[in-house]
Design a protein around this nucleic acid. Structure first.
Lengths: 179, 179
DNA sequence: ATATTGACCGAATCGTATTCAGCCACAAGC
DNA sequence: GCTTGTGGCTGAATACGATTCGGTCAATAT
């Protein structure tokens, strides 16, 4: 096997993958990007300049897209969160529909598989504003209908996590049908 | 009327509301939280210590929840994004279901109104991992069924924006019914 | 064996965050 | 009307952390 290359090489040639240090670093920075480099270094066992170098690389290579302040929606009076499914006539990715993302109330816009074409995450001041936004969506040519899921309470909401579950526990009940 | 109180003071005593400076500050910090206080000050027309004081207050009052590094999902090998609607038997907010949020693949968990009880945003390495997570969800007592919307492409995804659309344009077609 | 490369460390430098001592405008009280 | 207290601002001074630098080491390539 390759027990020789395993464990030995931390970082190979070009565009190499993240090692354990990078992973931990990303985890820490997602949690709190204001930590000092010395503190980060203590957590993962590296010196401050080494951490600095790695963070710089993670930004350069695009693993870290941006570092942002995450706001409390209530503080800025956006108390209504909703997911809006948009069904369109034909191929839905029209420029007009994409232009909807200009509104600061729209936080996400995805093309999805399933019985709908586009999925929006929108956060507004109140139901009145949601209505205004929906009106704009219906203005887009080709939009057939929308289905909105209004959030009653958010139990958890966080940015992309660096960690990955490597081993999924087996289901408790019966074995699920394969495929 | 109350034209005297309007415009003068929005929120008297405790936890007063954000002013225009705070708004701009939040906008800038959501976009890029690494800017220096002098640069922020230049943008909004304040000195660095004034900015510092305001940012400190925004954090203390909770308007800024955290400042986080936002990661590129591809870089950390989470290429599959899906929204999972979970229907449950009876009142769905069981501890077991909430415990699902422990997996780092789960980014959001909301109770929603509509024909479903819980809505999850999950990001996994591949469809195999999504299956593993769904298996765990089905293990939760009371879960009747799930419906997954797999994202084909993400056109836009960003954190909570400080800006608010104040004036919604009138719909182009017919006037929508009042109320 | 030797040269090259990449990553690390400790020390030094530099820039920015943070503190501090006034200053000013406004609101409430005399 | 005048005074006092409060909150928020400024410029200057200080302190801390980011960034740079020279040198070392290990692994790979020559």
């Amino acid at each position: 096997m390759n027990q020789e290359t395993d464990g030995i090489r931390q970082n190979g040639g070009r565009g190499r993958d993240l090692d354990a240090f990078d992973r931990k670093l990303l985890s820490l920075l997602v949690e709190d990007a204001t930590r000092s480099y010395v503190e980060l270094g203590e957590q993962i066992g590296l010196s401050a300049p080494a951490v600095h170098e790695r963070v710089k690389r993670l930004k350069r290579t695009g693993a870290i897209r941006q570092t942002a302040a995450l706001l409390n929606p209530i503080a800025i009076h956006k108390t209504l969160l909703a997911f809006v499914h948009v069904d369109t006539h034909g191929w839905g990715k029209s420029p007009e529909l994409l232009a909807i993302s200009k509104y600061p109330e729209v936080e996400e816009m995805h093309s999805v598989a399933g019985d709908t074409c586009m999925l929006l995450k929108v956060r507004t001041k109140d139901s009145r504003a949601l209505e205004g936004l929906l009106a704009r969506i219906y203005d887009v040519p080709g939009v057939i209908k929308t289905r909105s899921y209004v959030v009653l309470s958010t139990h958890m909401e966080r940015p992309v996590q660096a960690d990955i579950t490597t081993e999924w526990p087996a289901p408790r009940q019966a074995a699920r049908p394969p495929r």
